[in-house]
């Protein structure tokens, strides 16, 4: 029974099927909203499904210069990593699907795996655009990740536990952490950091199409590119869900007028709001240069996170 549960969790809910369906839908909504913000009609919100479906049906081509195991395997590893994070997130209640002792540190590591996989894929693709994109990816990884971890440390210090379930439970008992003024700088830093993590303007430097085509993904096509798209879309959902759990109290089940509304609805609303905030941010800015991005994260972003950390430690 436990084995069956595990397979259900990882493949259907809240794993692969649920995560990819919702992730693709959210990126579709993101594209539609972007279109409206730019005074275009924009694609329909199910466009991501069509795109991924089309890519899946294409011939699987590996370029001659990229004939290696690494190039072919990294999309799958990245997919595995993001789906695993989905299992560790509180999606329908404070308790995640995998009720083991995995804590925030594991999630931080797992969230880095897609970025590292993309970097490896770029370097192994044998294309100058791929390797330039991968190099920029490394620089960017080191800059936003510092801010990301500092924010998590501030939250963890505030709650006093490294366990995401405890963080969510704490917020259920007291109040959402977003309402704590000491963590407001950390929240702002978090949004700058995920903008880099999800490679959105102004930090989409690793895949700046006017300079380096599509960065590390340049040589990917067909089903492999489709997997990358799914990875990216699930990552968007996962990162939004992670912030929802850290700051917005995670999924809460309500009873409105005698009708029981499951926690997963709350989860979907909160993550959609976070995705829409990142969509807005990416539409009102120009892309920075890689040195400017590094400077921004190491000064402004890190400073905000440290202010929060100090406030949490000093102010009772």
């Amino acid at each position: 029974m436990e084995v069956l549960d595990f397979f259900f969790n990882s493949l259907v809910f809240p794993g692969l099927l649920f995560a990819s369906l919702i992730g693709l839908l959210y990126v579709g909504i993101d594209r539609k909203v972007t279109g409206h913000m730019q005074h275009r009609i924009g694609p329909p919100i199910w466009q991501e499904y069509l795109d991924v479906g089309k890519l899946m049906s294409k011939e699987d081509i590996t370029p001659h210069a990229a004939q290696s195991l690494v190039f072919n395997v990294v999309p799958l590893i990245a997919l595995g990593a993001v789906v695993t994070v989905m299992l560790l997130l509180p999606v329908y209640s404070a308790q995640p699907a995998l009720a083991t002792v995995a804590d925030l540190i594991v999630i931080i590591y797992l969230l880095n795996i897609p970025a590292i996989c993309l970097m490896l894929g770029g370097y192994s693709s044998g294309s100058p655009f791929g390797s330039v994109g991968a190099a920029r990816h490394v620089v960017q990884l080191f800059s936003y990740e510092l801010v990301f971890i500092l924010v998590i440390i501030a939250v963890v210090t505030r709650v006093g536990s490294l366990n995401l379930t405890t963080v969510v439970g704490y917020q259920a008992q007291h109040s959402w952490l977003i309402l704590d003024w000491r963590l407001i700088p950390a929240l702002i830093a978090m949004f700058t950091s995920i903008q880099g993590k999800l490679m959105r303007v102004p930090f989409d430097i690793p895949e700046a199409e006017s300079k380096i085509v599509h960065g590390a993904m340049t040589e990917y096509s067909g089903p492999k590119l489709a997997i990358w798209r799914v990875v990216y879309d699930i990552e968007t959902l996962v990162v939004a869900g992670f912030i929802a759990a850290l700051f917005l109290g995670g999924p809460v089940a309500y009873t409105i007028g005698g009708v029981q509304i499951p926690g997963v609805v709350d989860f979907l609303i909160k993550t959609l709001v976070i995705v829409l905030i990142t969509t807005t941010l990416r539409n009102i800015m120009a892309r920075l240069r890689i040195d400017q991005a590094l400077k921004f994260y190491l000064t402004f972003g890190a400073l905000l996170a440290i202010i929060s950390l100090v406030l949490v430690l000093v102010v009772p």
Binding site: Q38, H39, R40, V201, A208, S210, I284, M285, R287
Partner: peptide, 16 residues
Amino acid sequence: AAHEIGFNTLFMFFWR
């Protein structure tokens, strides 16, 4: 130019 610096919203506005 707006597209070259990655500001696609401004790009669309200009062309509108």
